[in-house]
Design a protein around this nucleic acid. Structure first.
Lengths: 120, 120
DNA sequence: CTTGCCTCTGACGTCAACGTGAGGTTTTAG
DNA sequence: CTAAAACCTCACGTTGACGTCAGAGGCAAG
């Protein structure tokens, strides 16, 4: 499968896929002419990368953690790292919930016809 | 209260506070000499701004929504906007939960001594 | 064989939320 | 009164995850 196909299947731009390779997140085979070739597993790999990006991890962090996924093994340091990221995500979730509730309050307050005006 | 005091109280940098003003998020009075002066309400205003930034809203979006908060009134358009942002946050929370669970899986899998090795 | 789409490698552009000086005024502590 | 600390306004620098354009080569169809 060539890069365009992978881009279509994952809905990720060709540029982004090349960038992932540049960052050491996504390997590719090459044809004689130098074109990138991917196996089916690449689709899930890209999905995982996207999820981790979505969770706020940087390329560098992902690059450090993906080998653990591949090898099914983590060193104590990488385990620390993984758990730290998980905690960070939990914190972020909590913050988002607060922000969402705040937004809901704003929606409520600004949506009801202003009662004070009736009495002034 | 001057900008340095507000920065201390909110744990936000002086530069950031000036930036908020530049973006129309935070008003200030001025002394004759031109220094910014803030009332006590500014502290909560900055906290709200930080929360909204934390929830992923851009300066532009926040600038559009803060007048609703101040006026306690929302137009149908801004209400749409608020609800759209709330939905976006909910989506993001869901994605974060998925990513966190994925990370937990990775931690689990990579943490237990590889069982296959015992039988090969 | 050539047309048209895909791919390649650079390499510069973008955008947001500030950071970081420069150069100068103002306020405050001693 | 003076020196340090805080403030002012430009205005350029930073970072990450790509977008975009240039110039050139590769590949299936007619």
């Amino acid at each position: 499968m060539r890069i365009g196909d992978l881009a279509t299947k994952t809905r990720v731009s060709v540029r982004a896929l090349r960038y992932y390779e540049e960052q050491g997140l996504l390997a590719s085979m090459r044809s004689q002419s130098g074109q990138r070739l991917y196996g089916d597993a690449a689709v899930n790999r890209v999905r995982l990368i996207q999820q981790l990006y979505g969770a706020g991890l940087s390329s560098k962090t992902i690059a450090e953690l993906l080998p653990c996924v591949d090898a099914q093994v983590s060193t104590p340091e990488s385990r620390e790292r993984l758990m730290a990221e998980r905690d960070r995500i939990n914190t972020q979730i909590a913050e988002l919930i607060i922000a969402r509730d705040r937004l809901n309050d704003i929606i409520d307050v600004t949506s009801r016809p202003n009662p004070e005006c009736d009495y002034v």
